[in-house]
Design a protein around this nucleic acid. Structure first.
Lengths: 205, 205, 205, 205
DNA sequence: TATGAATGAGCTTTCATTCAT
DNA sequence: TATGAATGAAAGCTCATTCAT
């Protein structure tokens, strides 16, 4: 019967969700397996039927969080746009979705950008790979723009993608402690798009 | 006697340095007080004569590291420059110094951007304050540019400063795993300055 | 229905056999109920339908092993022999059968003389009773010899039986780590019989 | 100062002694580190300053117990005796000392012959090495007797030594559950020596 | 009858911190 | 002032046993 498998799969998801909650609130090191189990109202032995150990669940929690983040980033087609205006609008949509995610799901932001990062060397490496993947995603948009001719031809797409990524992460961190996240988000959208496209310098003669 | 105080002060510095080394290599949680003491060849009971506890030393280590970072950022006078060219050169100098610091002192980068960030809630708060301070520093440069008229008048200096900060931190993270940090640094300087000033879009008509 | 009972009885035997295998290879404490169930390809909940708990199965496994050992010891009739030569031959047969059992079924040897002995206080007591029973068996042969007059009249049959038992157990332990068990067994038969009957001292004048 | 080292050495010995007591009474697996610490009235963290882990202390406890046993066995010079009478007396002395040890220090007997034997595979191997060493010791006495001509020339000294060892161990086990250990010991001495030297058969014609 | 998901008692081990010397 | 032996809270993890299905 599939029911058993489905139930197991559901429980795995429940544990990942509970762990996500616990890790992002208490922090990875301060959190215990007992906290996760208590969050679900299950025995802590049950946890070990579904996950190898504490690190194992962290990997799954981070993987899922990263997937959610990535799915927001790659929702658009990098090759769709052909003009700067079009492209700018696409970027605005992506940023809106991302910053909204950050503003609404502070736990995710906290987990990915704060709690997981120094959990242990391998976790740090995993997050660096995630940042790298984000950058690769961003770079595709940039490449498309350079190829279509509406972005600077001399753009170092790799580094620039990482730099833009840094801005995105900074927005997440900033929204984390914002008093009015929605208002702050809107400022980030405007200001962020502004820097990205036009830079900071004044109007050219 | 001053000598005694001086000696004590020296020892405090030694401990901070040793802790810096240990935390940035092993990671905060994986590191033990015994490791720090061993690094200095002192008894680990001695540690507690100079610092309250493990968190206390982390605070000092992070504070010192942050100070080093800040000193590089504020070495220039934010109000000195009057033209865009001048300003761009100043920015290039600052970025060069910063990225060189990141490339040369990976331990500092690792400590500030990786190990300390999720150590515990208060540490996270402290680092957010540090990022905030960095942003405030950056903002002064931007304000000067806006006031002098060579930066966009409508610049949201606060958010933009944070965004640029994010780029700076991203460069640090990137250099952390770079194979050839010096070459990577130079790409970051060029590409970073490029995005900052001109944005990513192609030449205007 | 008898069929049901027979099936149940068969399953009990299967579980005892599987447990025997698992305990003698992994060791009692290192072995888990799950290992026994896995060996049989049954659910480990099923185990508890046939045996009370882990100790219960050990008792059964040890009892069965002890029975096999005892059956080899009592195969002969203690009262049959009337002369020393006859008796010596009988002893040789018994030793051959015993040592062959040890050489061929190392698992049994291991279980009885190694794994079960310190499993827990009650198990230790059970094994002491088993050793005692073996000694009682051995003593019957000695008594017969003393009565018939071909063994020393002053023999402390009880202690001597225990001592001979010790030799038998020592042979089992020795064969456990023997490279060539069959060859080693033959040496044990000869040397063992030699000590038993003649002792170690040289020819009498 | 040596005092510190001496104190540490004393504590190590104390822990070994306490562990010896606890292991031989509760049994290795049933005993916890906490029991050992409680026996000494020290914190259980202290235990780990002196021993790696639970297995480590068992190794030390068994090694010490084995050493005590061995020291009793090798107290005499295997090459000293030149006549059977002399030799028999020597053997009697050794057996007396051994059996007295068993009768008086049941904990040692229990530890070596019961608790440690199946603790884990490596422990089993260690004990087999100890039995082997005992056998090697015994064999030296036999070899001397064969060389000097008062023991049977055709003696398989290796196997015979193991067989005698088995008798010795059996005496230990027997004394473990004896009601009057001293009386039982004396019977073992007489009966044991009897079998060893003269075997069981009646007077020769 | 057979199952295996759930459980939690209970163990080993670590390490920040204390304090007598 | 410097030390490191002692400590015990606290955590991760295992596995025999139960019981609803």
């Amino acid at each position: 019967m599939t029911t058993t498998d489905e139930r197991a799969e559901q429980r795995r998801r429940d544990i990942v969700d509970a762990a996500f909650k616990v890790f992002s609130s208490r922090g990875y090191h301060a959190a215990g397996i007992a906290d996760i189990a208590a969050e679900l109202g299950i025995g802590h032995g049950t946890f070990y039927r579904y996950f190898e150990n504490k690190r194992d669940i962290l990997v799954h929690v981070v993987a899922e969080a990263a997937e959610r983040l990535m799915s927001v980033m790659v929702e658009d087609d990098p090759h769709r746009t052909a003009t700067l205006t079009d492209y700018r609008q696409q970027t605005e949509h992506i940023c809106t979705r991302l910053f909204t995610l950050f503003a609404e799901d502070r736990a995710l932001t906290r987990l990915l950008f704060v709690e997981a990062i120094g959990a242990d060397p391998e976790m740090t490496a995993m997050l660096q790979r995630i940042y790298e993947a984000m950058a690769v995603g961003t770079e595709q948009y940039l490449r498309n723009g350079v190829e279509k001719g509406f972005l600077r031809a001399d753009l170092d797409t790799e580094i620039t993608a990482k730099a833009l990524n840094g801005m995105i992460i900074a927005s997440g961190m900033s929204l984390l402690s914002a008093k009015d996240p929605i208002a702050e988000r809107d400022r980030w959208i405007r200001a962020g798009i502004g820097v990205m496209f036009d830079g900071i310098r004044g109007e050219r003669p």
